[in-house]
């Protein structure tokens, strides 16, 4: 069931010198729906995610979260307000166990971590949130392993698990399938399907099979601009999109 827009973006611009990496993008993400953003390499998809997550400040435009203006807030504020993101390049704490990766992420939901006396591992709610996110991503059996000892696919799952451990309402997923084999990909697609309820999801992905299997709505970006936006069937039939992107050979993940 679609509800009001959780995340809404109007005329978002980010210039790098003379180059408009994102040049006036508007889109929405609604709770219970997955909005996929596709486009060739260099289209500005990752920059878009970086703008939405607060990793980069926009040059112009407006980002609203449930009607509240969050434009230009630093990434930790955006995260605290309920926007979780995962990274294209696996960005987990390799020297920590899978559990500690998620536990630390869940700890960010304490009102403050300026707590100096009680042991971090004694916060039962935090531990439970970490265990829940590990279970949701199918990693519970790997909980005690160092992240560096996990396979690439498992590290990608951990990446999502950490994001989930922060109890986000909006999920920004930057190529969760990057570098995955066929089997790992299909289990990740199943995982993403389960996350749709209760989250507004924005997915950047190169794997077209996955995108068309998952997306409720599609936006095609080319050179920082929105080329087309609509339901998957409309996008598939759009001649401009076919010319710019879908017709070409896939840049393999």
């Amino acid at each position: 069931m679609a509800e009001a827009a959780a995340l809404s973006v109007e005329g978002l611009v980010r210039n790098f010198g003379g180059l408009a990496a994102v040049g006036g993008v508007s889109l929405e993400a609604r709770t219970g729906m997955l909005h996929a953003v596709i486009g060739p390499n260099g289209a500005g998809k990752t920059t878009l995610i970086n703008l939405l997550s607060g990793d980069l400040p926009p040059s112009a435009g407006k980002i609203s979260l449930y009607g509240t203006d969050i434009t230009g807030l630093p990434s930790y504020r955006v995260s605290q307000l309920g926007v979780g993101r995962s990274y294209q390049k696996t960005n987990v704490f390799l020297g920590f166990t899978a559990f500690e990766n998620c536990r630390l992420a869940a700890q960010s939901r304490l009102p403050s971590s300026m707590r100096f006396v009680r042991r971090a591992l004694a916060y039962a709610d935090v531990n439970r949130a970490a265990e829940r996110s590990l279970a949701a991503t199918g990693l519970e059996a790997r909980s005690g392993e160092l992240a560096s000892a996990l396979s690439h696919g498992e590290q990608r799952q951990l990446e999502i698990a950490m994001t989930l451990a922060t109890s986000p309402r909006v999920l920004l997923l930057d190529e969760p399938l990057a570098g995955m084999g066929a089997e790992e990909s299909s289990s990740m697609v199943e995982l993403l399907k389960t996350l749709r309820s209760g989250h507004a999801m924005l997915l950047v992905e190169h794997d077209m099979d996955a995108v068309f299997a998952l997306a409720d709505r599609l936006t095609v970006m080319v050179n920082g601009q929105v080329l087309a936006s609509g339901a998957p069937a409309e996008i598939r039939a759009n001649p401009a999109v076919q010319e710019a992107y879908l017709g070409e050979d896939e840049p393999g993940g």
């Binding site: 990434s75 960005n91 704490f93 630390l104 304490l110 707590r115 100096f116 042991r119």
Partner: peptide, 19 residues
Amino acid sequence: SPFGHVLVGIKANEHRMRS
């Protein structure tokens, strides 16, 4: 403590800690 774990996380990957 939670503070100590945050500190160690910052050493490992400050950018991720912010996000």
